[in-house]
Design a protein around this nucleic acid. Sequence first.
DNA 1: AGCTTATATGCAACTATTTGCATATGAACA
DNA 2: TGTTCATATGCAAATAGTTGCATATAAGCT
Lengths: 181, 181
Amino acid sequence: MALAHAILTALTGEELSGYDLAKRFDASLGHFWKASHQQIYKELSKLEQRALVDARVIEQQARPDRIVYSVTEAGRANLRDWAAAPAKPAPVKEDLLVMCHALGLIPAATLRAQLMKRNAQARERLETLERLEAKLFPDPSALKGRALGQYLSLRGGLRYERLWIEWTEECSATLDARGKR
Amino acid sequence: MALAHAILTALTGEELSGYDLAKRFDASLGHFWKASHQQIYKELSKLEQRALVDARVIEQQARPDRIVYSVTEAGRANLRDWAAAPAKPAPVKEDLLVMCHALGLIPAATLRAQLMKRNAQARERLETLERLEAKLFPDPSALKGRALGQYLSLRGGLRYERLWIEWTEECSATLDARGKR
DNA sequence: AGCTTATATGCAACTATTTGCATATGAACA
DNA sequence: TGTTCATATGCAAATAGTTGCATATAAGCT
């Protein structure tokens, strides 16, 4: 289960609370693993039970107390073990592909609207990622270690968004060409 | 929930049993939506309860009886409604990206092995899809309706596998270049 | 005679994820 | 003064998906 490992990864190097983690998952991390705050809090409790993270309460007056977590040595070992085991390709679960497959049963106009919307979403995400790339990795050739891994995973995210932009455009173009005849 | 709709789509035009569907999901359909036979049988019962499909038992002597399903008019309407509602982009859940993000915490050699393995898997899947494309759609410019949708979703699958091939190669090349210095 | 493969269906238990709700405070805004 | 936003944590219920097991027959292999 990679949510646990995504959390462990995020937690290495800095102590974070569930709330902090939820924000990371909304921003950078979320581009390749999505998780809600409810899920994160639950997972953190489980990780604590398994002694893969340590919890520490930071008292606050104005706001609710924070519970910050750090990775234990067992947690780091667990991460390494996980990485050594064979990774399964993520099952593809893409509504749009199913809808596309159903063309003929659903109206072409409906599909076209979905494709255009998805294209706009992917463009927006791509822009975000490109800004992130320019900001965090201005000189990729100098990267190594931790930063290199983060750069490469970001590159994966960029490719992923471009895939959907290009595919939706291929579909739209094909549908347009067919529609005219 | 798109599993239900993937099933409804597959069922339109021909009656199929759970077993037949499971085979489809293993072959073509499964390239953009995965489902186990247990899940398919369960979903079929639910669809029948909701009167979106009709069930019919075909008795057999040598083998267990088959239960074949066909889509009802309510099922077709449900499919159209689903397609008209806004589709969410599939949440990205890719172990490899998380592992890559964790480089520095996990050994580079481990990551490299995962990347190479994934590259090989994606190449294999791509080949399968390319064979399928050549076989089913020898003349794409002539397609329309149902077949066009199936062709375009297959094109999405092709792009998807190419994405992973290219990305794993970018990663390997970058890691190699860094490793030498 | 025993093993595997293919056909055909399904339950049960577990894990993962989503959705909705609940609580509590301070600051900014209208 | 009421509303919304940001901070901060979590429970409960439902849905979705995985993993393991169970059953039954026939054909082909060893």
